[in-house]
Design a binder for these strands. Sequence first.
DNA 1: CGCTTCCTTGAGTGCTTTCAACGAGCGTGG
DNA 2: CCACGCTCGTTGAAAGCACTCAAGGAAGCG
Lengths: 248, 248
Amino acid sequence: MVARSHSSISSSIPSAFCDECTLSNICITHGVDSITKARLKTIILHPTPFQAGDYLYRIGNRLKALYIVKSGFIKVYVSTTYGEEQILGFHLPGELVGLDALGTNAHRCDAVALDTSRVCELPATKLSEICRLSPKIRRQLNRLMGRQLSHVQEMLLLLGKKSAEGRVAAFLLNMSARFKERGFPEYEFHLNMSRHDIANYLGLAVETVSRVFSRFQEEGLLKVRARNVQICDDVRLRQLVSGTSTKD
Amino acid sequence: MVARSHSSISSSIPSAFCDECTLSNICITHGVDSITKARLKTIILHPTPFQAGDYLYRIGNRLKALYIVKSGFIKVYVSTTYGEEQILGFHLPGELVGLDALGTNAHRCDAVALDTSRVCELPATKLSEICRLSPKIRRQLNRLMGRQLSHVQEMLLLLGKKSAEGRVAAFLLNMSARFKERGFPEYEFHLNMSRHDIANYLGLAVETVSRVFSRFQEEGLLKVRARNVQICDDVRLRQLVSGTSTKD
DNA sequence: CGCTTCCTTGAGTGCTTTCAACGAGCGTGG
DNA sequence: CCACGCTCGTTGAAAGCACTCAAGGAAGCG
């Protein structure tokens, strides 16, 4: 049976200042010297938490700030004029949100909280100052953009080459790894997003996701109860991801 | 009939120095003051041209340099251990290649020339110096990363939500726009890549791409002769791109 | 308790893939 | 010069995977 005390990732509340923050090891400020940290402290804001459904920013908004997720869960997506949406990612605590606007100074995505979410805010007006502060920070920003690029590229591989089963398996393993990084159970977690969101993210129909979940459960790879997932056979899941599927 | 003098984009040869380079208006150095440009001149290298099939870098290589394409055509792709490949993009003159390594200092893609290609080389060791040179350059680098991110995100939408026809139409219009930016005919151009590459890039089977090309031609949207393409009805192509297709 | 949203499951359709064959273009070598 | 083999691109026929449509169950909320 799947435990039910899981929304835990939403209730982890790092303290307000970097040097005491429980996320510091995966945060942008990781490895920065204490002087710089002190100056960061004067720059970084801590706005009131976003509630589920609140937008951090919308498409077209001028870049106001970059956000580091402290707790909660952020969904980022693009939508076309015609109303189609494509979810680009789900952001967990420790991750930086808003980089999409660095190029044009205007956001090209929507970012919405799926859960009560606390964030640290790096005001855009202070960004160049932050970058001047230390080469370390510059490198960190580059690293984070690089990581984001890398993630999106993985997604391209997923959407371009993998079957429905491969995509869902990859998604679950990815979530698992990220929960683990954050000190949460690796093989038993709560998905904050709806099946609809998962389907959209993976380029599938809702029904297909549902069916794959069911099939995985039948085959003993998972135990699924609503949004609670327990991974029972990560080895086979990994095989499904790498397993060549369709085309090419 | 499609003209045949097209590989022209490979034979445009900007002069070696930025201030005389015919690409300067779309290059990373655009808008930089002359002092900085002079210093860039001392940093930027001009290696001997890459031949078709030559690799600029391979997955895992340490970041040696960023490359600005001066002429030719670069294909960038990831490949999994199992041998699957996913093409991430095709780079035309004026575009920056190698950003994927900024995060980890190691490349996560392969980059190969599809044609004889000249490049400018920004040595990685000089990168931080370049960044220190001017905030303008920093911003340009950010802009370029942002643009890349933005492009990959568009691709996600394409692969996640569009039908085969929509994908091919979007691909053709994208190429068209980029040729136009570079002063080449907008509605008549040569595709340097194979159908196989196009298919891979768009997450389709080769045969599907071929069929869509044929269908488009039958319907008077295109004229296709081998790799030469003439766009006859860009309006309907645009409709095909935005036209909602499958799922969601 | 009824409403709504979310999720699941079934049946049928269809788009894309797969398998297969063929023509064209091209470089090689007899 | 032409045959040969190769890659590339096209086309046809058939199969399959994922989608659409439809219905019903479960859970949350006023």
